[in-house]
Design a protein around this nucleic acid. Structure first.
Lengths: 374, 374
DNA sequence: TTGATTTGCGCAAACGTTTGCATAAGCGGT
DNA sequence: ACCGCTTATGCAAACGTTTGCGCAAATCAA
């Protein structure tokens, strides 16, 4: 890879802004002040309450006045001030979302699901990133509470190992739902993937394809997701009467480079693995590169299965078998659960868990048999 | 590819929720009501104004009282109500973002940049998706204005061909900045990529590598980005004394399948192309697959260059040459510009354009010469 | 005609802040 | 003792809604 730096670096944007002279907007006399409910009332010689009720479709207002109000509202381009309304009724109609980061496939899809479900229910979505940093996460919580969100969705940062900062939210009785990355041993509402099942299925699939020395690339084990994926892997092995070998398990940060590094180590073993189940497709790509570099064939010499069903797993050569997480569904589910809990406010139910089932997408990287096992 | 549907589909989540019985929170007597500034004032026997000023660090309040206030605030876990504050001062401290969708590489990265820049400046970010649909876009605008955002960032939906719904925003004098996808011929604030330069550079690079019959895959031409990328392509050809051939230009929706379809057509030409510049990496992957299927070698027989520098362009075989758009920088730039405009409210400057320069990443798919051109 | 009920609307108090203005206390100078 | 000045605080009005309650007029049953 080579970086042809034949362009000016765009960081200088701060300075060279085209400013063609003074502006001549077609509507230079601007109607600065927004029309308020009070303005409407004055112009119609009725009270603000009537206007308010008319706009909210209260039945106690005659059709005639309602019509007058609505018409004038349109004419003046009236926009309700949801801050004021929120203040008065104590409802902001906003949901907060805290994610480690929004780029990347997984979280952006989840957020898409969240936003879709929320806006369908008439809520706005406020988004914060923790940048995988528990300190940021703490700030984000503060932020959310100031913004008067009515409910919060969280996926934990990688560095979050304790839970105290969330107590605040519960003390305030703000509905809280976790998704994907949660802290175990705490009774919380959550929507998670059955990561164990995912790990299990991927590994079982490899076993069915005849692989026997299956290595595992895992992530930080204090995170539920990686721990469970590994458990699934181990369960499948045991069920098949195979031992779980520490030497075949490589715990890392799940970067692509970790894949290349780890694979080099594994290939240097006296008995190198004949397959890899990685808890991330990224790492698996690294593995794939190393394997190809060494002249090994995939899937003949070595089988590969990953996790997340990233976009690119269909684009490598060969295509990668992977576990799909239903990201968007997770977002929608989490939001629905949150909304449900918000409705039930007051009556405390036990924390609820929703467990989504992953799906296995079998592709070339693991298909050694002519007829796939299933 | 095969879809092993050995799991229950998770859509049934609506029903089977674990509900282990009634909850016993450790803190069952909840402090429902949030402490307000008034509560603080009462408990300290001072006025609300004093409390307010103390919390905002006004210098006219004695250190002693300030300290008392802050301490009690901490003790009671006081959280300012930003709705109320916003209402009073007429500032919501929120920015609105309207994007076609947030999943995918580009927009999620841009949004990441936006969120980062905004929160650094003390603003929240409200996100809406238009789902590439102009009707949604209209609703989103309404939504944003109700939420009293102080500024709006927009990237147009694919189906947006006119501009009327944005007039509302300008009439209200709400600062507005477009990014990436804009409508041409309108004087608006915008941060865009120099797409023409991108197209030009990619094409020139192909020419330098000795390719002569370069095809182009383009997107909907009413969108500035695709139009400009094509212009860049044509400019490069002309500069090299080569004709622009309609038969080598394939306009499509920039899906992967469009790449396979289009390439099949092109390869059926009496004189098929010896290189492709695609305005999207997705399409290019489709092209790549078709090309490999036909037994043609990349880059020997056919050179490929794409646009967007998607994650996966490093993962195909061979790796794809592509134009990088500096997505996150674009988000940050747009936000900074917006904030700047917000500060200057009242003094109308001419609409400003910021043009980011793309970068060319040369990878194997286009490197035919031993020594790259530059 | 009377009394009861409905219909349609207004009054005014909230919601939790911020902020211009007034005021009270303290203090040094004359 | 008075004046002027600083320093610290309070009063009350806003911001734009929503909403409980009350009241008049209209309708209805007798």
């Amino acid at each position: 890879m080579q970086y042809l730096h034949d362009s000016l670096h765009p960081l200088q944007w701060n300075l060279p802004v085209l400013r063609a002279g003074h502006c001549f907007f077609p509507f230079f006399s601007v109607a600065k002040k927004r029309a308020s409910i009070t303005d409407l009332a004055q112009q119609l010689n009725i009270s603000v309450s009537t206007v308010s009720r008319a706009l909210n479709g209260h039945s106690t207002i005659s059709d005639a006045t309602t019509k007058r109000v609505v018409e004038l509202a349109n004419k003046l381009g009236y926009q309700p001030n949801s801050l004021a309304a929120g203040l008065r009724r104590g409802r902001s109609r906003m949901l907060g979302v805290i994610v480690p980061h929004i780029d990347g496939n997984f979280f952006s899809q989840v957020v898409k699901g969240i936003e879709a479900a929320a806006s369908k229910a008439g809520y706005h979505v406020l988004i914060c990133q923790s940048n995988e940093d528990v300190a940021h996460e703490r700030e984000n919580i503060e932020t959310m509470m100031n913004a008067q969100v009515e409910g919060i969705l969280v996926s934990l940062s990688r560095t979050t190992r304790e839970f105290r900062h969330f107590e605040k939210i519960r003390k305030r009785d703000i509905p809280l739902v976790f998704f994907d990355r949660i802290l175990e041993g705490h009774d919380v509402n959550a929507v998670v993937l059955d990561d164990r099942a995912g790990g299990y299925r991927a590994t079982r699939h490899l076993l069915e394809q005849g692989y026997r020395r299956i290595a595992h690339f895992g992530g930080p084990q204090h995170l539920n997701i990686y721990k469970h994926r590994r458990q699934g892997y181990e369960d499948a092995l045991r069920e098949h009467g195979l031992p779980v070998l520490e030497e075949l398990i490589y715990i890392c940060d799940m970067k692509m480079e970790d894949g290349t590094d780890g694979m080099k180590q594994l290939l240097a073993l006296p008995e190198p693995p004949d397959a890899v189940f990685s808890a991330s497709d990224f790492t698996l790509v690294g593995v794939l590169e190393t394997v190809k570099e060494r002249g090994l064939r995939v899937p003949e010499d070595i089988g590969l299965a990953g996790f997340s069903n990233e976009l690119f797993s269909r684009l490598t050569e060969p295509k990668l078998t992977s576990i799909d997480q239903h990201c968007e569904l997770m977002g929608r589910s989490a939001t629905k659960l949150l909304l449900q809990i918000m409705e039930e406010q007051g009556q405390h139910f036990a924390p609820r868990h929703i467990v989504l089932q992953p799906d296995l997408f079998v592709r070339a990287s693991s298909q050694r048999q002519e007829k796939p096992g299933k």
